[in-house]
Amino acid sequence: MTFFQALSHFLREAGLNLVRGWRVSILAVVTIAASLYVGGVFLILSHGISSSVENWRGEARVVAYLEAETTAVRVEEIRRRVESASWVIGVETISSAEASDRFSETFPEISDLVASQGEAALPPSLEISLAPDRVEPPVLQDWLEQLAEFPEVAMVDDDRRWLAQVDVFASLLRLLGLVLGVVLLGAAVFTTATVIRLTAHVYRREIAVQRLVGGTEFYIRGPFVIEGVLQGLLGGILSAMAIGFSFSLLAARGPAQLAGGLFALEPLSWRLLVQVVAVGAAAGLLGALLSLRREI
């Protein structure tokens, strides 16, 4: 028997087994699909957040707000000092007037409020762009603290502090997704193994006959292995479809963005969906191999 004859025999038998035992087959397919869906969604979300954080970090900015009465000359001096650090890419000086203009542009509805407070309502500031990879974090930290101690500097606002928190959140989400995914996938593998063991039990007489007339183990077990792979493939396809559907729903709700546009939802890649299907097939294969080790 050639390999392709064997494969087509396995596929036919496995397909028949799936259809004949459709109730338990559905059970295996659905548990695989559900575990992949939960694990997949968590991983995609955490991945989206992480890559957003990466983007923000790349354009890390520190804003030093100055006292309102600082003279333009003094502002220029401070700017020079800041610029001299090797990890500073650029410094932009925002005068009080510019700050007010920006504010009215961003929030036109409440711009009157600022206007009524007069010229000095918003303090001047220095927007400092950093290259965090050019410096050791503790050195940067010291430098920022020194900056804050200038008498003219009212406050140093460091974006990167809360970015780190978001990053921790993304890691937690990813960990949770991985743990949930692994636990659920373990359950799915176990279910597949049980379903295949059940099928093998139903066909035990036929298996015995095949052995007695001289069927090789490859020939006898092949259909069960393929059955597991088919269950995993179906589960994977189902879950890929569910993930795709969920994301198109989210996208339809508005621009594909969450949390007020801070987290850009990355478009789903085909590669990811193919990976989901592949993990499903692998889970089915593993379940089949586990059940074959003892039972058949």
């Binding site: 028997m1 050639t2 006959v209 095949q210 007339v213 001289g214 069927g215 020939y219």
Partner: peptide
Amino acid sequence: TYLPRILG
């Protein structure tokens, strides 16, 4: 015909 089937 189990055996002939196994033999392809």
